[in-house]
């Protein structure tokens, strides 16, 4: 550490000794060669530096000369061949650059399109899942509770009610917490109403998600579903709006045995 400091001090002193010499050189006057020249390790450095240059210069000259001799040793046809092959190689490489750039652009475009298509497909899947009833849904809507102690309500009346709700914009419908999908059916066997094969028992609670006012308006049309229900013996129908209803998913997704989609849809 102290050796380094001493060396630094020595250099600084030398530097300050050198500076006046340079200033003298800048101003016209008698040459101050005696002060400008400093001796020490300087000359050795100069010799080493120039020796390095000489070494590099000669080795560079030697290398390029050897290369040139190599080329001169070749016959004219060989040289022409070498040149042609080098030109071909350069052309091929340039073509490859063009191809790769084109490929890059194509890949960028297609990845962007893929992203858009994927988003659209996701949206469509969501909408179709709600429609098909394969996912549970939640939202505002209304309950239509039909009390039927005498079992006067037939499956056709429930179909009418569901149809009326769908007309009024119901997006999802369930009866007694059984979701109705696109392929759901109502039937009647031995005085029992079946939804997709599961028996329903009164009171029937039809739940619809949609705009509650529109749905209610649809049900209350004069001569509509509510009037028809009230006309039946012992039946009492009641509409309740709700801000938040939860409908379950279908217990089993609809399966298609015969129908095949046409083309390659998403």
């Amino acid at each position: 550490m102290s050796a380094l400091g001493a060396e630094l001090g020595r250099l600084r002193r030398r530097w300050s000794r050198l500076r006046p010499a340079r200033r003298d050189a800048a101003t016209p006057g008698p040459p101050t060669s005696a002060r400008a020249r400093t001796f020490g390790s300087g000359p050795a450095l100069v010799v080493v530096a120039t020796a390095v240059v000489g070494f590099l210069l000669v080795s560079q000259l030697g290398t390029s000369q050897r290369f040139r001799q190599q080329l001169e040793a070749e016959s004219e046809e060989d040289l022409a061949r070498i040149l042609a092959s080098l030109t071909d190689e350069a052309d091929a490489l340039r073509d490859e650059i063009g191809d790769l750039k084109l490929q890059l652009v194509n890949l960028r475009n297609s990845s962007r399109e893929d992203g858009t298509a994927e988003r659209a497909a996701r949206e469509q899947l969501k909408a179709l899942s709600v429609l098909a009833g394969t996912v549970a849904v939640t939202g505002p809507g209304l309950n239509l509770v039909v009390d039927d102690p005498d079992r006067a309500v037939g499956y056709d009346v429930l179909i009418d009610a569901v149809q009326e709700l769908r007309d009024a914009g119901a997006e999802a419908v369930a009866i007694n917490d059984l979701r109705m999908g696109v392929a759901s059916s109502l039937a009647e066997r031995e005085d029992r109403i079946l939804l997709d094969g599961s028996p329903l028992s009164p009171p029937y609670r039809i739940t619809a998600i949609g705009q509650a006012t529109t749905l209610e308006g649809g049900l209350k049309i004069p001569g509509g579903v509510l009037d028809a229900l009230d006309a039946l013996r012992g039946v009492r129908a009641e509409v309740q709006r709700s801000a938040k209803l939860d409908l379950p998913a279908l217990s089993s997704a609809p399966a298609f045995k015969v129908a095949r989609p046409v083309g390659s849809g998403p």
């Binding site: 010799v47 240059v53 070494f55 590099l56």
Partner: peptide, 28 residues
């Protein structure tokens, strides 16, 4: 001194016959 250094370097290079790699040739 510079001439002396150049001469020394040149003589060493002639004796050793070094080859500058093609990639470094431009830098040298």
């Amino acid at each position: 001194l510079p001439l002396l250094g150049l001469a020394i370097g040149a003589i060493v290079a002639v004796l050793l016959q070094p080859t500058v790699p093609q990639d470094l040739s431009r830098y040298v």
